[in-house]
Amino acid sequence: MRRKVCLLGFILCAALQAQATDATKLFDSLRNKILLVKDYSAEVKMKINVRFMRIPELSGTLYFKSPDKMRLERHGGLSILPKKNNSLMLRNLIPPGHATVIDAGITTIAGKSVRLIKIVPDDENSDIVLTKIWIDEQQLLAVRTETATRTQGTLVMDLEYGRYISYGLPDHVTLTMDVKDFKMPKGVTMDYMESSEVKPSEDAKGKKGTIQIRYLSYEINKGISDDLFKER
């Protein structure tokens, strides 16, 4: 009996171990896939929904260069990106280096069954405290991430894929983030009307803001000069 229990325990441990190993493997291969993209430029349409912001849909070219350079070029127009704009990149929402990966089982997102893994970075100084990734195992794609950070609050990213599935690059990304309120003295702005009379759009309630990006086309790994990212 005792041996049986021992054996069962061993098998269970082994199974758990195997599971953890599978999750780590899954995470590593996902990360490797993502890291394959060194740079890209993409034609995008971006919509920022923040309660205090009224910004029309912006079209432009989004440039990315590994590891963390990003720039939205609007051909004479203004570009607006979140301050830590690397959070717009999936790769930067995933902890770099060694991390502990925990398998949190199968769940469904939009009717699809996906595996949820939780990643805790080994580096205690990392800005990322914890990342949850919902992974489509068959296609090796992250369909959602939820990253708790020290400085930026919680960032949630939903991704939809299409034509660039092989690079793991999404066609559509929605980033939900925490936004602090914005106030200026009325004596300075001399407002015509209270903005509260203007209803904020539905999906931008409260202190959360979303940024939606539609990627219309990508040019991937063609090489981009660093000069492009310099402040002009």
Binding site: F52, F182, K183, M184
Partner: peptide, 10 residues
């Protein structure tokens, strides 16, 4: 810039 709103016009 309004007192509580940031507006951008293309």
């Amino acid at each position: 810039l309004k007192s509580d709103t940031f507006i951008m016009i293309l």
